[in-house]
């Protein structure tokens, strides 16, 4: 694990924006940190679409949003003095499974010493029914610090 490598996992939410702003504030002008900006593109369940065409449209729309969000995150970091060569955008496609697990796999494989995620602040009932990416990461992370930005 490399302590100067951070994996910042984002979706397109305000919580992720907050996480990016937090990082850019805490690590402002530090050029010894490498940042992996990770967007996990979860393909929507085909069952919720009447046909292939509308599914593809939704996939493309989500992909466009995710891509735009990653660029926006990078821009924020660059504006705060991070060097472009220290930022790596990671766009990961997933058809099914747990996003939290995927984030942990990428962290492990690439030796990130810290994972940073935003948090929605969901209720107990919502956590039970829908699950929580940040809680799963806190629970299952190994060999890594976890920063949860609320």
């Amino acid at each position: 694990m490399e302590n100067n490598k951070l994996l910042v996992a984002v979706d397109t939410s305000e919580n992720s924006e907050r996480a990016i702003h937090y990082i850019s504030y805490i690590l402002k002008n530090r050029d010894d940190f490498q940042i992996g900006l990770l967007y996990v593109h979860m393909l929507p369940d085909k069952d919720i679409f009447p046909d292939e065409e509308s599914w593809k449209l939704c996939c493309a729309e989500r992909e466009r949003k995710g891509d735009a969000f990653l660029k926006k995150c990078e821009k924020t970091l660059l504006e705060k003095g991070f060097k472009k060569e220290n930022i790596k955008q990671i766009f990961y496609y997933m058809e099914a499974g747990s996003v939290a697990q995927k984030i942990l796999e990428i962290q492990e494989k690439n030796g990130y010493g810290t994972i940073v995620v935003g948090r929605r602040g969901i209720s107990k009932a919502e956590e039970f029914l829908f699950g929580s990416v940040s809680n799963k990461i806190i629970h299952y992370a190994k060999n890594s610090a976890v920063w949860v930005v609320e």
């Binding site: 979860m42 929507p44 369940d45 069952d47 919720i48 099914a96 499974g97 747990s98 996003v99 939290a100 039970f128 029914l129 829908f130 699950g131 929580s132 990416v133 799963k136």
Partner: peptide, 8 residues
């Protein structure tokens, strides 16, 4: 019935 949940 189905839903678009993935984490759980």
């Amino acid at each position: 019935y189905t839903f678009d949940f993935y984490e759980n």
